[in-house]
């Protein structure tokens, strides 16, 4: 199949970027989207031109490394699919395809389609962990967890941190990512002791990173390759508000004499 690609080219974080058009005359429908770009890049290298930079790693849809906006949709037209798992059979011969990086001030462009998602790492560092004592591992089933809660926590934990939610959001908000990370720990007994501090600290870091504010447009859940829903955002809002209003600061004892 013959394709015309309009790709955002930007030499570095501070450089001025622009759309550049490339032709791929012989893409196969069996190629993955990234393989099609690999072919384009090999030809660019042969011609002595700079290849198109894009992030990728596992190429099996589980690592969260890949992703750019394809024709205005993060990860492209197929739902519940990362860019690496998108295949050229989802396109037609003669298609024009526009490729742009995730657009958010909090995700500065490294080069071309690759963005720096360090902001997500800093949100995780603010509370996306469970404090445990080291020592012998606890007996596997010592803490009972209901199937419903275990499943719900697993649904949230499916987040691979790709950033498609931010890219899709009309406001470049990171609520779905943060909600998934807050919820998967807050739902489980191991995460409960730090539940409110976690919600507050991760939201505070999210705000500090300069992500936008959620307007409940639900574009994030439609773009999420792991189909994580906005119900987790409501859950995080509950934890954040309850924590802000009722969590006891340290040093305020339980009353009595």
């Amino acid at each position: 199949m013959k394709l015309k690609l309009h790709i955002w080219r930007q030499k570095g974080p501070k450089a001025q970027g622009k759309m550049v058009t490339y032709e791929v005359p012989d893409a196969s429908e069996h190629m993955s989207f990234l393989e099609m770009l690999d072919v384009l890049n090999e030809r660019l290298i042969e011609k002595g031109e700079d290849p198109v930079a894009f992030d990728h790693d596992c190429r099996e849809g589980i690592c969260g490394m890949c992703g750019f906006v394809i024709n205005g949709l993060p990860h492209g037209p197929k739902q519940a699919t990362t860019t690496c798992q998108l295949h050229m059979r989802s396109f037609k011969d003669g298609d024009e395809i526009t490729l742009e990086p995730w657009r958010a001030g909090s995700f500065p462009i490294v080069k071309d389609l690759a963005v720096d998602r360090g902001a997500f790492d800093r949100v995780i560092a603010a509370g996306g962990f469970v404090s445990v004592n080291t020592g012998a591992a606890q007996d596997g089933n010592a803490i009972p967890i209901s199937k419903t809660i275990a499943d719900l926590a697993m649904d949230a934990a499916a987040c691979i941190g790709c950033g498609a939610c931010v890219a899709a959001c009309p406001n470049a908000a990171a609520m779905l990512f943060v909600a998934a990370k807050v919820s998967h720990l807050n739902l489980l007994p191991q995460g409960k002791p730090e539940k409110y501090a976690r919600a507050r600290n991760m939201v505070a870091q999210m705000d500090k990173e300069g992500f936008g504010n959620c307007t409940n447009a639900r574009e994030c859940e439609a773009a999420c390759p792991k189909t994580i829903g906005v119900e987790f955002i409501a859950r995080m809002n509950r934890d954040f508000l309850t924590g802000s209003l009722f969590d006891r600061p340290e040093g305020t004892g339980g009353g009595g004499a």
Binding site: V69, N71, G105, P170, G212, T215
Partner: peptide, 29 residues
């Protein structure tokens, strides 16, 4: 305040943007 922050959160917009779920009402508040 929220809108100003939201505009600042995406300094460079998309050349092509498609909507999947966001209703007309939600995008025009």
């Amino acid at each position: 305040r929220l809108s100003l922050e939201n505009n600042a959160a995406r300094p460079v917009g998309y050349q092509v943007k498609n909507w999947r779920e966001a209703s007309y009402a939600s995008r025009t508040m």
